[in-house]
Simulated scan of single mutants.
Amino acid sequence: MLIVVIAALALGTYATRLGGVLLRERLDLPEWALRLLPVAAATLLAALAATAALTEAGRFVGPARPAGVLVGLLLAWRRASFVLVVLGAAGTTAGLRLLGVQ
């Protein structure tokens, strides 16, 4: 049963992407919609990142993980190397959890 669900989702994703390619020339979107499409994509990505950072199984994960994400964001904003960003975020989360902050 699970493989059927995975196959259906894969097929739906493929059809959606193929539809975008095939219908791009046929659709005349208004100028305001063309300007909003990149913003909508960035907003969706930010919402996905916030959901992953703040929740697990539909519940708030506590302050340790969001604090680690915040440290990672600050390091990335300061243009630290990728390895330093990951280690800083993971180290902050692990350190807080070691101190008993969930």
Rank of each mutant, 00 (worst) to 15 (best):
I6H: 12
A7N: 11
L9I: 14
A10I: 12
L11G: 15
T13C: 12
Y14E: 06
Y14T: 13
R17H: 15
G19K: 07
G20C: 07
V21D: 15
V21C: 15
E25P: 10
E25L: 12
D28K: 06
L29C: 02
E31A: 10
W32K: 11
W32I: 12
W32E: 03
L36D: 05
L36A: 08
L37V: 07
L37K: 02
A40K: 11
A40S: 06
A40C: 06
A42T: 15
A42I: 14
A42D: 14
A47Y: 01
A49N: 05
A49C: 10
A50M: 12
L54S: 07
T55H: 09
T55G: 12
E56S: 09
E56L: 06
G58I: 14
V61T: 10
R65C: 04
A67T: 06
G68H: 00
L70Y: 00
L70R: 02
L70E: 06
L73V: 05
L75T: 01
A76T: 11
W77S: 08
W77T: 07
W77P: 08
A80P: 01
A80D: 09
S81I: 04
S81N: 08
V83F: 11
V85Y: 05
V86H: 00
V86Q: 01
L87K: 01
L87R: 00
T92F: 02
T93W: 03
A94C: 01
A94T: 03
